[in-house]
């Protein structure tokens, strides 16, 4: 069983580790489909150029970047049962993580303890219980334990900056691999945002509307978590599209007027580095919204989905191959997959 003993030194890296920067100046990771139909994980520079590419055997979803080694864990798309640990300096597959029997991955993971432990979101699909699996990254990614995620359908897991606390977006939607991606419990879904400390749920909050699936989250330096929401109501219903929460307080929801234009669906969320702005992307609405706490600025791009902090603002990727940064735009002959990850 994984325990606190693993969390002795938590060095939160705020700048790119030299090992990553050495790879052609890579600052971000994104999975892509290439014109050949093959899939790859790419490193991108802050100007939007491709710094490196590592082939993937299947469509990726998100990646988790090791904080010190040039190692990325690429998760297969839900309900994938494998994740690849890639050495991005030479493209080699270092390890292939197989979900334990009766589990599948949801597509996200996060490193803890300065990169010594990898946490993954998983579905124990016989019962539908959400699990967080732990893997020892210093011992060949050996499985070292798992705990309850605090809900159904844990999708994204993140580490709160400067802590070893995990925040988990329990999307609330039950699925079973025998039924593909079919949603099995929409009538009684209850998503939540759960915080795990030392493997135990220490706080859990729900939004007023249980039909808003909490799937993607991002945390800023003070621990405030931004949540991107996916509505299971009619797409034209004006329901909140994002929310924030800081431990000990109630959640606050925002952006109901955005919902029709978003088609009720947020694909990704990120804070700016200084924490003053939150960006949410709406690939079904072909737009992103940047919120500064008062005003919302809209950015229109087809199939825009990936977003992460970059420079003083954000970088975005879209399904047409576009990369938008404050330094300009690039277009590559590929389809960028859902998420853009900062190194």
């Amino acid at each position: 069983m994984w325990s606190r003993r693993l969390f002795l030194a938590a060095g939160a890296a705020s700048t790119v580790a030299p090992a990553w920067a050495a790879l052609g100046g890579a600052r971000f990771l994104a999975a892509a489909r290439e014109p050949s139909g093959d899939y790859a994980l790419c490193g991108l520079t802050d100007g939007g150029d491709i710094a490196f590419r590592v082939p993937l055997t299947a469509r990726g979803h998100a990646a988790a970047a090791h904080p010190t080694r040039p190692e990325a864990v690429a998760f297969a798309r839900r309900p994938g049962t494998f994740a690849l640990v890639l050495d991005c300096s030479d493209g080699q597959v270092v390890r292939r993580l197989a979900a334990p029997d009766g589990r599948h991955f949801y597509g996200h993971g996060a490193f803890l303890d300065g990169g010594r432990v990898l946490a993954t979101t998983e579905n124990a699909y016989a019962s539908g219980a959400g699990r967080i699996g732990f893997w020892d990254a210093d011992a060949g990614y050996r499985r070292i334990g798992e705990v309850a995620s605090g809900g159904i359908g844990p999708h994204e897991v993140i580490r709160l900056p400067g802590t070893e606390i995990l925040a988990v977006a329990n999307g609330g939607i039950r699925t079973h691999p025998a039924h593909g991606r079919e949603k099995l419990n929409l009538d009684k879904m209850r998503p939540n945002l759960a915080y795990l400390d030392d493997g135990a749920v220490v706080e859990r909050i729900e939004l007023p509307d249980p039909k808003l699936s909490i799937r993607h989250i991002a945390a800023r330096a003070d621990g405030t978590v931004g949540m991107g929401l996916q509505s299971e109501r009619a797409p034209e219903e004006t329901v909140p599209m994002f929310a924030t929460h800081r431990r000990g307080g109630p959640p606050t929801v925002y952006g109901a007027h955005l919902a029709p234009g978003f088609a009720g669906y947020v694909g990704s969320v990120a804070w700016s580095r200084d924490g003053t702005r939150l960006a949410v992307t709406a690939p079904r609405g072909n737009r992103a919204a940047i919120w500064d706490g008062a005003e919302i600025e809209l950015l229109h791009r087809p199939d825009i989905c990936g977003v992460t902090a970059a420079g003083g603002g954000f970088a975005f990727t879209d399904g047409l191959g576009g990369i938008l940064t404050e330094r300009g735009t690039r277009k590559h002959p590929c389809n960028w997959d859902n998420h853009l990850v900062s190194l």
């Binding site: 999708h155 694909g267 690939p283 072909n286 879209d318 399904g319 389809n335």
Partner: peptide, 11 residues
């Protein structure tokens, strides 16, 4: 035209 690589993904 490659339509909806992300918007149709559902995650």
């Amino acid at each position: 035209i490659a339509q909806g690589f992300n918007s149709a993904d559902g995650d």
